[in-house]
């Protein structure tokens, strides 16, 4: 046990493992790139949809049930299905990346969608009524009252979507995707536990860092009036 910890430590602290094309640094950046692309695409789909569902109240049941239903679907299985279906139809670089990206986006949409929907839906009915009553148009109510009020839940939706993405991107190394998952999968294949464990530590650290960064962003964008710290003294 001490031996493996030591080996993992040595692997992690060896500068050679950090540099170069397949190094920890490059793979971290690749992992981040894939994750943020997926998050961005998912948010572009899910946030407007969630706002629409929340603002109009239409398709509410779908938004409510979607997250639960998708959570039950095993991401590894879906990943393999996507690759088997799409790989023969794609060429070049895209062939490796696209199926995985589609799965990452598909898994990230529900948490963002339901967070956005729930955030808008949770707007104080009195505030919404007052907003209309003082003469805001539908768009103004959405922009000035519902979206700012929904931000905490939109942000937590984004955070859980990002965790899902980072985790799934890790296992997507098995279908050839770049990123830190490579160390875990390649280490497994070549029976090099130090590389697996070192990569696992790097992934865990990356996930924690990104989550904390998003938490920080949440603090910046969410009005202090909405945080639980702002209560009657």
């Amino acid at each position: 046990m001490n031996q493996t910890v030591l080996m993992t430590w040595e692997w992690l602290t060896d500068p050679a493992n950090w540099q170069g094309r397949g190094g920890i640094l490059a793979q971290s950046l690749e992992h981040l790139r894939l994750s943020f692309v997926a998050l961005l695409v998912a948010a572009l789909i899910a946030v407007p949809t969630g706002l629409w569902v929340g603002h109009t109240g239409r398709l509410r049941w779908a938004a409510v049930n979607l997250t639960g239903a998708v959570r039950a679907i095993p991401s590894l299985g879906v990943l393999f299905v996507a690759v088997l279906l799409l790989l023969p139809r794609l060429r070049g670089e895209l062939a490796f990346e696209l199926p995985a990206l589609i799965v990452l986006v598909a898994l990230a949409v529900p948490p963002i969608l339901s967070g956005t929907y729930a955030g808008v839906d949770a707007t104080d009915p009195a505030a919404r009524d007052a907003a209309r009553g003082v003469g805001m148009t539908g768009g103004q109510v959405l922009r000035q009252v519902e979206i700012p009020g929904a931000l905490p839940l939109i942000m937590s939706g984004l955070r859980s979507a990002m965790l899902q993405i980072i985790g799934t991107a890790t296992i997507a190394a098995i279908v050839g995707l770049g990123g830190l998952g490579r160390f875990l999968i390649d280490g497994q294949a070549s029976r090099q536990y130090d590389q697996m464990a070192g990569g696992a530590i790097a992934v865990a650290a990356l996930a924690l860092l990104v989550d904390q960064a998003l938490a920080l962003l949440q603090r910046v964008v969410v009005s202090p009036g909405l945080s639980s710290a702002a209560r009657v003294r």
């Binding site: 046990m1 493996t4 910890v5 993992t8 965790l163 980072i166 985790g167 890790t170 296992i171 998952g181 875990l184 536990y193 697996m196 464990a197 990569g199 696992a200 530590i201 992934v203 865990a204 996930a207 924690l208 989550d211």
Partner: peptide, 23 residues
């Protein structure tokens, strides 16, 4: 809640390091 941020594959691989179990 922080524990939840660790990707599952990473956790499966890291636990032997902590627990001293077989991979």
């Amino acid at each position: 809640g922080l524990m939840y941020t660790i990707p599952s594959l990473a956790l499966f691989i890291l636990l032997p390091l902590v627990l001293g179990t077989q991979v």
